[in-house]
């Protein structure tokens, strides 16, 4: 399986994501600069890494969401390809309208960088099928604008469609409904503030994040790679 890691000016978790896929997961990965003349249909899954694209100018993720490569990402998402946005990647997906809601500064205005306990709310998605229902996992967070906001009607829709993938066991940032990660309606786009790519081997603390990437691979093999 071939993963593209999209790199924007100011991305800084792109290499973590790249090595998580290449070394820990053992699949193909390529770093793709946002201005490169690439055809994203050559990749089986798209990863939008964390960082501070364009220095968070205007709003986190807002400027990157207008770049030309987003049109290809939106097309891939519409076609059902797995698209994962972590941290700033999540913010880009929100600003691009691929996921509902918006990010606000953390409730306490602090940049937070530590492990958080998460609850796997939906273990049926292509990103979470390797987790047990309501499993508690621990992943690092590292964000200043991770306070997820949406109106009540949107929150009810997220709940009704099982679009809430992860919640925080002890909400660190003020997010609506303790939300840490959400899926789109089709279930092939996941945005999350915690960093699974930073928890892929014991040396990094734990391997809880690795199963997210393994979920994508097993899903893909089940659906597309008949001969694999």
């Amino acid at each position: 399986m071939k993963f593209a890691v999209l790199v924007f000016p100011g991305s800084n978790c792109d290499r973590d994501m790249y090595f998580a896929v290449k070394d820990s997961l053992g699949e193909e990965a390529e770093l793709v600069w946002y201005q490169d003349d690439v055809d994203l249909t050559d990749y089986d899954a798209l990863l939008l890494p964390g960082g501070f694209s364009y220095g968070d100018y205007l709003r986190s993720g807002a400027i990157a969401s207008t770049s030309g490569i987003l049109r290809q990402i939106i097309k891939a998402a519409d076609e059902g390809k797995p698209v994962l946005g972590v941290c700033n990647g999540f913010q880009v997906l929100l600003e691009a309208g691929l996921l509902p809601g918006a990010m606000l500064p953390n409730r306490d205005l602090k940049f937070m960088c530590h492990f958080e306990e998460l609850v796997v709310e939906n273990n049926q998605s292509m990103f979470t099928r390797q987790y047990a229902p309501n499993e508690r996992i621990s992943l690092p967070i590292a964000h200043g604008d991770g306070n997820y906001f949406c109106d009540e009607a949107t929150y009810e829709r997220l709940q009704a469609n099982q679009q809430i993938a992860f919640t925080y066991a002890a909400n660190p940032n003020g997010s609506v409904g303790d939300i840490a990660g959400i899926l789109n309606e089709q279930g092939n786009v996941l945005g999350m503030m915690p960093h699974p790519e930073r928890a892929v081997e014991q040396l990094l603390g734990n391997e809880d994040g690795l199963r997210l990437f393994q979920s994508i691979v097993t899903y893909w093999r089940d659906h597309y790679a008949i001969n694999a």
Partner: peptide, 8 residues
């Protein structure tokens, strides 16, 4: 489309 985020 850009200057404001209508969600917030």
């Amino acid at each position: 489309r850009l200057l404001a985020n209508p969600v917030i």
